[in-house]
Design a protein around this nucleic acid. Structure first.
Lengths: 235, 235
DNA sequence: CGCAGGTTTGAGAGGAGTCAAGGGTTGTGG
DNA sequence: CCACAACCCTTGACTCCTCTCAAACCTGCG
């Protein structure tokens, strides 16, 4: 899969031989409906997952049934790689909007890593970077108020969707409902709604039905206490 | 460092040759005072860190100066490994109590990984497991109330300090102040205090000045919504 | 003994959750 | 082309959880 090479070479150098090996990996494409689990066809060895279109989240549930979205993946990003070598987490992948995903055989990746160190390190580095995002989410959930949390999330998504987002007027599609935002930032849908309105009247961002319009990047970044150091692709 | 081998072999198999190579890594021991940063002596290539005694946390600060503890490491655990291959996170290591740490030259580990795939994969797997804990913290911060958060934390620490913790009457040292607990679970010290009291009068746990007494494991695990699936060493 | 730092309590303010109803959009079928 | 249903968004009122501020209380230690 060429897209996997693209994602990995954002942070790691790979020889042409290695790129070719990755491109040659067998994959299996799948359409997933909104709010449906994206389940790997191979139930024995979990497969890695490339998001082709839509939006995919890694989600978990409390014993009381509350949902928390642990991570989101946008088109072009590869996820579920860690599950290949060690996974016992009760996390699952779920399409946040109708999505196309492409499964990459975990067993085949495993085989590649047995022979090729550069690929192994690229996958390892990939996880380190995802882990940096996760750390930032911990800070967001633990030490920021509703408005800051939502603003921070929108800043992050802006940087990930469009690395040159820093100018005002940028508009991009972030196809989630307010309820899903709530499950990302640890709030209730009602509060998210109020928060979005407050960000809109403050002329910072305008989020409406899955579309984000950055009105004033500096204001938004300030309200969201956002510094993009933790994102690898931030210009 | 033998302790590093011990930590890695909790989840990965290593040949004697590889164990020997790890044991032969040059290290540098250091004492760190309570609430002081544990800074690697090598500022160019960050080193990995083994906690020998005490308690070390990975901490970050909000622009407003609020602190969030992202992870804690108990004696015998190795941390800061990811920083060897990719690190731009604004996280730092801090001793939560007077601690002894042992630095393992990042450049040397890097050299080892260049030649040895099994070690690389062990380090990778190590990160996957730490990442599973991080995910659980996201759930804790995002979707649980104060009492559940604190109870969950104490359950996790019980399992990590003493894998056989599941029986009542267990007592272990968890040398943190209530303020530090607050920075772990995203609350204020006052609230943590009230929460601890409520857990005590409910006869679930008794936390006092750095010592945890499990009074009723089932009750505590229930209140904390705790399932240890995500911990590698849970019996 | 007296100090320093952590712990414990209380009261009041404010952020966030809950419940419930109404308003918009989108898509489907008649 | 209109009617309707489904789903999401929006709002308001009230409750509950958590924070803030502040003072008093321990406890270990010099």
């Amino acid at each position: 899969m060429a897209a996997v090479v693209t994602d990995l070479t954002k942070h790691s150098d790979l020889q042409e031989r290695e790129r070719a090996a990755i491109r040659a990996l067998p994959t299996f494409s799948m359409q997933v409906q909104r709010e449906q689990e994206a389940r790997s066809p191979d139930l024995v060895v979990p497969d890695a997952c490339l998001v082709v279109s839509g939006l995919v989240g890694s989600v978990a549930f409390t014993n009381e049934g509350k949902r928390q979205i642990i991570a989101v993946f946008i088109p072009g990003e590869v996820c579920n790689i860690g599950s290949i070598i060690a996974e016992q987490s009760a996390t699952m992948l779920m399409a946040l909007t109708a999505s196309e995903v492409r499964w990459i055989k975990g067993a085949e990746i495993e085989r590649l890593t047995q022979r090729n160190l550069a690929i192994t390190k690229a996958l390892w580095r990939h996880l380190v970077l995802q882990s940096a995002v996760l750390k930032e989410w911990v800070i967001n959930l633990g030490r920021r108020f509703a408005r800051e949390r939502v603003a921070h999330l929108l800043c992050e998504m802006a940087c990930r969707y469009a690395p040159q987002a820093k100018k005002a007027g940028l508009e991009f599609t972030f196809p989630v409902t307010q309820e899903q935002i709530a499950d990302i930032v640890g709030l209730t849908p009602v509060r998210v709604n109020q928060t979005l309105r407050s960000l809109r009247v403050a002329n910072a961002v305008d989020f409406r039905r899955g579309t984000v319009k950055i009105l004033d990047w500096d204001k938004l970044a300030h309200k969201g206490d956002f510094t993009p150091y933790y994102l690898p692709y931030s210009d």
